[in-house]
Amino acid sequence: MSAAIDVTEKSINAALTSLETSDDAREAALRTSLNIARMRCVLDPKAVMLETWESWLLAMQVHSAVFAAASTDEEAATCQIRQVERRLVATGPQFHVNAGTWVQAFYLALVCRETARLDMLANIPVSLLRDCGGVMDEYIYAWVETLQSFWLRRDDLSDKLVQAVDLNAPEAARIVDAQTMGKLSYPPIILFYRYLRRDAEGFNTTLADALRWHKECWIADTDRKESVEGVVALGPLAIACLARAVSIPIKIESPYLPQALLDYAWEGEFDA
């Protein structure tokens, strides 16, 4: 894994050199930055090493930056990535600026407790995500709107959450397979409901279910077992970070929930 991290670090460094002007570099940086963060958690399951936290911070910065560049009315968006101010040329809708990537970006900002980037993401028009050129299941847009309504304290939060739950039924799956819908996409939504209700017992029960389903999904076949994508349960981790912020005790310990990320152990160490 160390050798794989070294190779991937070279790839992300190459992507970052062209990030300001290249759409291809931005797409590569999205994928590569998150994979490095996951790889580091293979070697450091509790995320206690400085390099692991830096990798998660980088993934958050890259994911937020592409949306800042896609949504700005200016010629470029100024974004801090690895302690360097970078001017990303504005793009408007792009294939990689889709609702799925937006959800990942929001989750990463929750894990890193980055309120300024959460503010920016919450104000991204859903129409921009729909104009990316890809086709996605409708539930993802309802989930985006739910998270935006929550963060912006809109009155329609309950309606948006009900819509997200209804559209997330396995029988509603068109693009994503029913197993992925039920075991990966659905749990963060129900966890979020438990969080809103401040239901500590229900939250921990649902979190345990979410992690069990996450494991089942990522060991379902050989390709998934070998994929680094399942190393961390990003959605449940993000909602658990929200829960911790309102003093809901997290009683579940799991390598899918790196403890230092959940605890925000590196608070104040970096200017993100």
Score class of each variant (00 low, 15 high):
W143L: 09
A164L: 09
E27A: 14
K46P: 01
L257E: 00
L167S: 13
Y193G: 09
Y186D: 09
D155V: 09
I5A: 05
H214R: 05
D23T: 04
Y193W: 15
F192T: 09
T180I: 04
V42P: 00
M136I: 14
E75A: 10
A99K: 08
M49Q: 14
A272M: 11
A172G: 06
I81W: 02
L161R: 02
A240M: 03
F150Q: 08
L211D: 08
E145I: 05
T52E: 07
Y139V: 10
V162Y: 01
Y193L: 15
W151V: 05
V126Y: 00
V135R: 11
L157A: 05
T32M: 11
P187V: 08
Q179H: 10
A173S: 15
K183I: 07
V111A: 11
R86A: 10
R40N: 12
A47H: 01
T205L: 13
L34Y: 11
A3N: 13
E75L: 06
F203I: 06
L19N: 02
A28D: 04
R153S: 12
R82Q: 14
N35H: 12
L261Q: 04
L262P: 02
F270R: 15
R130D: 13
L257Y: 02
N98G: 15
V176R: 09
D221S: 15
A122W: 08
A245I: 11
E9R: 11
A90N: 10
A265P: 06
A208M: 07
E269H: 10
L211Q: 05
F67E: 05
R197P: 00
N13E: 13
P255T: 08
A76M: 01
A70M: 12
S149M: 03
R38V: 01
T91E: 02
V7T: 12
E54P: 04
L234I: 11
L43S: 14
Y256V: 00
L50V: 05
V126G: 06
C41T: 15
E54V: 12
L211H: 03
S254G: 10
T101P: 08
M39P: 00
R197S: 14
W56I: 08
C132K: 02
L58I: 02
Y141P: 03
L147E: 01
